[in-house]
Design a protein around this nucleic acid. Structure first.
Length: 213
DNA sequence: GACCAGGCACATC
DNA sequence: GATGTGCATGGT
């Protein structure tokens, strides 16, 4: 809780997730897999330009056309397939209606999301929290890296262990989870690179940093 | 040119 | 079950 307050005082509210609709947030969650958000924004702009930010539109478009639109986000063939999988499930099981999705109990919905090929734990939790407002903490590379380097968790910690740690030190509150994850990404981008360099250190150049594994 | 970015699935041992 | 690899664009 202390780190959350410190980050909030330092950076202020981050106002996440950027996206006009819940469906757009779902699409963004897939597109941002291992990808800079700037590139995702270009891809989303391309989709918006083609009026493709609806479940029915994406369900109807060809793989090639979709891949072409999302090219700036990288991994476009894989992501086109993953978006198709997600949308197909969404349409088949819930008629492409966000309201119907939102009624499903959180645990069951997470299981269903994880059963879609291309939707992993982080993507599923991002959709649950940011698109549907469910109180689940999103763990990403920054969350893991920051908590391990601060000694809060061991390097071998699993996704669930990191998630449980965060949820145990924070009150269960979707808005707080939302803000906290956004702040972690913010501070991580600026101060927690995968391979820290020690400017001026005589050992600079040697791999003397702690590997998280 | 090297490194990085809001992962995930799959092959192989 | 752990470990390695492919996927790809764009910024610094």
């Amino acid at each position: 809780m202390g780190f959350y307050r410190t980050l909030l005082a330092c950076y202020g509210p981050q106002e996440w997730w950027p996206g006009e609709t819940a469906f757009e947030v779902m699409v963004g969650a897939v597109l941002t897999q291992n990808t800079n958000w700037n590139n995702v924004e270009r891809a989303i702009a391309n989709l918006r330009e083609g009026d493709l930010l609806t479940a029915s539109a994406l369900d109807g478009i060809s793989h090639e056309a979709l891949a072409g639109r999302i090219k700036p986000a990288g991994y476009f063939n894989i992501k086109a397939r993953r978006l198709k999988n997600l949308v197909r499930w969404f349409c088949e099981a819930y008629g492409g209606q966000i309201e119907q999705l939102a009624e499903v109990p959180q645990d069951r919905l997470r299981e269903e999301l994880l059963s879609v090929n291309g939707i992993g734990k982080e993507t599923a939790d991002s959709i649950l929290l940011y698109a549907l407002g469910k109180p689940t903490f999103v763990v990403d590379a920054y969350t893991y890296r920051i908590l391990v380097r601060h000694g809060c968790l061991g390097a071998e910690s699993s996704y669930e262990e990191v998630q449980e740690y965060c949820q145990s030190v924070l009150p269960e509150d979707r808005e707080l989870y939302n803000e906290c994850h956004a702040l972690i990404v913010r501070v991580g981008k600026e101060h927690c690179k995968p391979r820290p360099r020690c400017n001026g250190c005589p050992l600079e150049g040697f791999e003397h940093w702690v590997e998280e594994g």
